[in-house]
Nucleic acid binder design. Structure first.
Lengths: 193, 193
DNA sequence: CCCATTCTAGAATGTTCATTCTAGAAAAGT
DNA sequence: ACTTTTCTAGAATGAACATTCTAGAATGGG
């Protein structure tokens, strides 16, 4: 029937994600995206719609991308506390791992767009809730396994852990001392004892 | 000698601060600033320099403004833990208090500009350090007064409290359940017992 | 009164923005 | 070979951007 697409849609979307991740929504121009995605301006509009729609797709892709990376880190059978530490380390390591920008597109977007775009605000809230659920499930598993005390309230703790993680995803972007960041993780986890 | 300025420089700078606070740096145009500051475009450039310079002034003014508001909340003689709670509540209340935008210009700027502007990254790190010092001083006072255990490490705790506060300043911008936010504060403060 | 300065108003400049367009070449199934 | 779609390339559009300009009115100390 017709000519087939020559670029890989996911791969191209990933390129857009990287740019939004590093620069934010407003700072990233369509020209930047054309240069970085490696396909024609017209192809971007045909495939991904306008800038905002492309951004929404990139945001969704980001969550999938990050979740996959994180989950593969959590496959090993570790004590619950250590699993939770893995989640924190995953965010902090992005400071060293230079393949991707420091920080987190979800937090960046929460800060940049939540007050200005109600639809995006809701998407971001949902994403935070899913992270919270991840902690919640780990804690419940821990209580079932017996390495997390039943005295603890998993619902409260998951809110608390999620908030700490949000904070870290801001601090890793600054010139903040990285020893400090590890100390924050240790102290936060001590609540689980 | 000459005609005197008709506008109050601080008051006009405050207007700029409000706009950057709500919209961020990139999203705020000079036209927005002209409309909101109520002085002529030319007067903005003459008085405050270009957009980035104006932003830096607004950021400095913001810290002064917020610090003053916060300090007046801490004048009363309260137990240390309650004083620290006051600091958290101050941030959270901004969610209800509609005079000013939700969230915090410091955190917003950390997220939006730290990776793109080294000078701003340093300014933001310094601002975070000063918040950390605020906590540190409260904790030392508490240990001297005797209502904070000497077992605690004030340096570690000040990092920890600062990070929690950063997280909250992101979450208050989202549609996140506000009951959750109070629970996070309570659980964070329980570490001080 | 005079002159330096700051105000007002809005036009001008030149760049960059997101988006759409024309125009034709390349592929793939019928 | 024909048709349909997607590709390439780059120009066009019209708005918005930061910044600077001309031009004159207002003000205040000498």
């Amino acid at each position: 029937m017709a000519r087939s697409k020559e670029f890989d849609e996911k791969q191209t979307l990933k390129k857009a994600m990287e740019l939004f991740w590093k620069q934010g929504y407003e700072k990233t121009s369509m020209q930047d995206l054309v240069d970085h995605m490696g396909i024609h301006r017209r192809s971007i509009y045909d495939t991904f719609g306008d800038k905002r729609t492309l951004f929404l797709s990139a945001l969704t892709y980001y969550e999938e991308f990050i979740t996959n990376k994180l989950m593969s880190r959590l496959e090993r059978d570790l004590p619950t506390k250590q699993k939770i530490q893995e989640v924190f380390m995953f965010v902090i390591n992005s400071k060293v791992d230079s393949d991707y920008p420091k920080g987190c597109l979800t937090v960046n977007t929460a800060v940049e767009l939540s007050l200005l775009d109600e639809e995006i605000a809701q998407i971001i809230s949902d994403m935070f809730t899913r992270t919270e659920n991840l902690f919640y499930n780990l804690l419940i598993q821990g209580q079932n396994k017996g390495d997390i005390s039943n005295e603890h309230n998993p619902e409260l703790l998951s809110l608390y852990l999620n908030n700490t993680l949000v904070g870290l995803r801001v601090l890793v972007k600054t010139n903040y001392n990285s020893n400090n960041i590890e100390n924050i993780v240790d102290l936060t986890l001590s609540v689980l004892d």
